[in-house]
């Protein structure tokens, strides 16, 4: 076990956290590969997250970020072949590889030690079951709570996520709640057993900006009070700045840039990160909007990925003969950061 944990730390090409170098991270994903038949949708993926910290995984639709979270949860169907390791430190200290767990052990972790919140609060709750029953089910899946204890816990969680009049909400059906309220219920459900790791897959994308801000605030508060690790998946760098400690930018199934969120947002090294930043609405100190600089084109299909650097067809900095031939690897750029670009030094200077 010790050697496993040692490997988990040593193997990180880029230490993603700038915190003190303690033992192993709560979740360390190494060389993760996901393929459907011959189509590789994720390759060589590497990230880690510590308790009490938030890692944002950022990328456009089709970058492989959601499929990565499903792989870690053990929710990918049998049609996917998964390689690599996802080492998770359990409450009792045991380190398990989430990708190699039996279905039964994987299920025992889900909802208990690892939980997930999804994008569409409108469809993620079962429409024919009462809110209270859906909350209590988490406890039933992982133990034998008494009716009273289960109900009390459900009430407590509804209160924790700030749902007004929780007693009557227990008996409500999902369609009787607003979108923001439903997402709060989803969060309450995910946190019923105080998991060590919460994966939130675009939890605010379907919501109004005002509700989005509320949910972000709620997640941040809960994370601090429960000391859990949060993996926050989003396509919006604007949100990263508001919630994340660390960030991993994904493009076409790989991490192209990673590091502390503030540093990456302030001085992005990868042209793709710059493109995402240029796409996010921003204002300068005086409040005037900075002009949008969108990235041209779209994410390539994983069936026919471009040769060389996968971003080169959309990259303004691409150099013919180099970027379309050689595939870059994630290399350290100092102070806990890494970038996967052949020309990042030239671009920076």
């Amino acid at each position: 076990m010790n050697s496993m944990m040692a490997m988990a730390t040593d193997n990180r090409a880029v230490p993603l956290t700038d915190g003190p170098a303690t033992s192993s991270p709560l979740l360390g994903v190494e060389d993760l590969g996901i393929a459907f038949g011959a189509t590789k949708v994720v390759e060589g993926l590497r990230f880690s997250v510590d308790p009490g910290r938030t890692l944002a995984i950022v990328g456009e639709s089709g970058s492989g970020k959601s499929i990565t979270s499903l792989a870690v949860m053990g929710l990918l169907g049998s049609s996917a072949s998964v390689s690599g390791r996802a080492l998770f430190r359990r409450r009792d200290g045991e380190v398990v590889d989430l990708l190699r767990l039996s279905p039964g052990r994987s299920r025992a972790l889900r909802g208990d030690e690892i939980a997930m919140v999804f994008q569409e609060p409108m469809t993620a709750l079962n429409p024919v079951l009462r809110i209270g029953d859906q909350l209590v089910e988490v406890l039933r899946n992982h133990g034998r709570p008494t009716r009273g204890a289960a109900r009390a816990r459900a009430l407590e969680m509804l209160r924790t996520v700030g749902i007004p009049d929780p007693e009557s909400r227990l008996h409500a059906y999902p369609h009787e709640l607003s979108g923001g309220m439903r997402q709060r219920v989803m969060i309450a459900m995910a946190l019923m057993l105080e998991p060590g790791l919460l994966i939130a897959d675009e939890p605010t994308t379907a919501l109004d900006v005002t509700i989005q801000a509320q949910i972000l605030l709620l997640l941040r508060r809960l994370q601090k009070s429960l000391g859990m690790a949060l993996v926050f998946i989003t396509h919006d760098l604007g949100i990263v700045g508001q919630i994340a400690d660390d960030v991993a930018v994904m493009y076409s199934g790989r991490v192209v840039e990673a590091g502390p969120a503030r540093a990456v947002l302030a001085t992005p090294n990868h042209p793709y990160t710059r493109g995402l930043l240029g796409s996010a609405p921003q204002v300068d100190a005086s409040g005037t909007p900075l002009p949008l600089k969108p990235i041209p084109g779209i994410v390539p299909s994983p069936v026919f990925p471009p040769a060389g650097c996968r971003f080169h067809p959309r990259c303004g900095e691409a150099k013919a003969g180099l970027c379309d031939r050689t595939e870059p690897v994630l290399e350290p750029t100092g102070s806990a950061r890494g970038v996967s670009c052949l020309r990042w030094k030239e671009i920076a200077s």
């Binding site: 996520v161 700030g162 749902i163 007004p164 607003s178 923001g180 309220m181 709060r184 900006v209 005002t210 509700i211 989005q212 801000a213 509320q214 972000l216 605030l217 941040r220 919006d236 760098l237 604007g238 949100i239 990263v240 700045g241 508001q242 919630i243 947002l265 302030a266 930043l277 996010a280 609405p281 921003q282 204002v283």
Partner: peptide
């Protein structure tokens, strides 16, 4: 003012005081 405060901005952390923190909406 609240709508403005809710705009996600990479360079600006969430302004907790300006968020309409009422779940009922």
């Amino acid at each position: 003012q609240a709508l403005l405060a809710a705009i996600p901005d990479p360079a600006r952390p969430l302004d907790e005081s300006a968020i309409l923190d009422d779940p009922a909406g």
